[in-house]
Amino acid sequence: MIEEKEIKVSTTDPDSGYMIRDGKPEGFFYLDHRTVDLKYNMITDVHVTAGNVHDSIPYLSRLDRQQQRFGFKVEAVALDSGYLASPICKGLQNRNIFAVIAHRRFHPTQGLFPKWKFIYDAQRNMYVCPAKHELPYRTTNREGYRQYTSDPQHCKNCPLLNECTRSRNHCKVVTRHVWEDSKEWVRGNRLSRSGKYLYRKRKETIERSFADAKELHGFRYCRLRGLQNVREQALMTAAVQNMKKMAIHLDRLEKRG
């Protein structure tokens, strides 16, 4: 039986989306998916969606659009943890783009082993649990996650059972996405010297761009209702910010002679 997901719809602005995120206010919002360059902090793309659209959904298509429309040769990207999804990691790896994505903190069930306690053996395609028992590959679900399951006969007498699983049949299941290797590649990039440098630059570029838009250009609130009106506000705000950046840069060039 397929469960129907309840979607809240605003009675005053149906184009907006109900957003629930940790550390963010809850309610109906729009999201501006913005891209800036590293050298001049120029805004190269603005894409507005309803607040309930996840950041990772439009990302790759907007990246491709910029490369095709402007002829950009993108060498590296730095993204926040909202983009740490297997399809994003795989897509960036396939495009030969050095990707740095912030670590996302997962909160395991209290009292149970976190996933990293289960060691993946790539050669044998299986996991090994903290008690050194093997969890062989069983199947792959529709979402692209491979399932590795333990032997209940071993688990039911294991002294670590209560810290491993609360399953009634004493069977532990560990999942791994088919593109998990790409996510591990991104994690390696983040810990590299270049990755740390790129991610530090976010506070001077994209985070600064959003802060200026909100504090100096009234972008904290939507002026009008409706997706098209909000999109126009976002584009006009970005245009003004870019013109200021251009003026500052040209002035510096003129002073240098």
Rank of each mutant, 00 (worst) to 15 (best):
N157S: 13
F113V: 12
K115W: 05
R104M: 06
P136Q: 14
Y120K: 05
R105D: 09
N141I: 14
R223M: 00
A213M: 06
W116M: 07
R208V: 03
F106R: 04
D212Y: 06
F118G: 09
R105T: 13
C171P: 01
S194G: 02
H217M: 07
K117N: 15
H107M: 06
V230K: 00
T149S: 14
S182A: 15
R187W: 11
H177S: 06
R193V: 11
R187L: 10
R104P: 02
C164E: 03
F219W: 03
R231S: 05
R124M: 12
F219D: 01
F210V: 02
Q147R: 15
A122L: 09
A99L: 08
C158M: 09
Q233M: 04
Y148Q: 00
A99F: 09
E232Y: 02
L135Y: 08
R202H: 04
N141T: 12
Q233K: 04
G226Q: 03
Y197L: 10
N125G: 08
G111E: 10
F210W: 08
E134N: 13
A122C: 04
K203F: 06
E163L: 15
K172H: 09
L216Y: 01
H103M: 08
H170W: 13
L198Y: 14
Q123V: 12
K201R: 09
M126N: 14
K196T: 11
V128S: 02
N125L: 10
V174Q: 15
P136N: 11
A213F: 03
E215C: 03
K156D: 08
G111A: 11
R231Y: 05
R142T: 14
A122R: 12
R223W: 00
M126I: 12
E134P: 03
A131Y: 13
P114Y: 05
R166T: 15
K214P: 01
K156C: 14
Y199E: 09
E180W: 10
Y145N: 05
S192N: 02
N125P: 10
H103I: 08
P152K: 05
D181W: 12
D121S: 09
I101Q: 08
R166M: 12
K196G: 05
K214R: 02
K115Y: 10
G195A: 07
L161E: 11
K172P: 10
L161V: 13
Y148L: 05
L191N: 08
H133N: 12
E134A: 15
L198N: 05
